[in-house]
Amino acid sequence: MGNVADQGEGRSSITSLFSLSGATGPLIGLILLCAVLSVATDSFLSVRNFLNILDQITVLGIMAVGMTFVILIAGIDLSVGSVVALSMMVLGYLNVEAGYPMYIAIMGALCAAALTGMVAGLLITEFKVPPFIATLAMMSIARGLANMITNGSQIIGFPPWFNMAAIIRHGGYLTITVGVMLAVFIAALLFQQFRKGGRVLYAIGGNPEVARLAGINVKRATILVYTACATLAGLGGILLAARLDAVQPTIGIAYELDAIAAVVIGGTSLSGGTGGIGGTIIGVLIIGVLRNGLNLLAVSPFLQAVIIGLVIVLAVAAETFKHRGN
């Protein structure tokens, strides 16, 4: 029997809050990345550029939060990119074409998104469709619906304040859209670490049968997780509409892959049960900083794609090596 070393007294509350246990590698990577970029280009290290990065990761960050929950329960959601587009088109239709006030349009967009998640969740739990297939189908359905709303064309003409929500930096720092993202991060962290519902996700991902025998309502939790993931994608769509000041049904293609990449870079295992939001935030930042940094360095677009792929491999391989070392 392996003798079990004492792992020292409890982790500090901050690290436990961010549950970085699986994400120390990515965190070090992020810090290194920032250090290198600060030296390599003088335009990187500035408050303004940092705020730009936050602007740029808003949608990805919010989608990745939902994706983290899904992957934590050993699922996958391929539909988020399409749900972003569906939510945007519903928003545009209700607000611009049908003339409803923005708050109703936003509610409508979120409801449409939530509905897709709920349907996917029901397919997975009640009809035992594998998550990959259920959400693949939903990806196609949501994209088709998004296109049907305007027969493929874009909608512009939102009220001016809507775009301002993504541009004006209140107090010099915070756009409303970035504020929403930070609020989602904090709420998700608190939920994951301190709410019963959040802890239960780890049990389901670790072993759904153990969770079920422990009296956890696995089906209900699964449906809720997919609904939450889709709703967050819908929220991402609304923020993206504000940022672009226009909506179009072709937006968000392959966003699900970015979200999955961010979650995996952040140390959440695709087989479920380990990882968490803290790591995902780092994963999102790595992608954001990397894209920003490579643009600032004027690296050729083709080389950028290669570098981003390499970083994904490195982040995951480093984590695997760390585990093997233990």
Binding site: R199, A203, V210, T274
Partner: peptide, 17 residues
């Protein structure tokens, strides 16, 4: 397969139910 989640801590396993 049914009793414990092997990769999770003892505390968490005891806490789940």
């Amino acid at each position: 397969l049914q009793g414990v989640i092997l990769e999770h801590s003892i505390s968490d396993n005891i806490a789940y139910p």
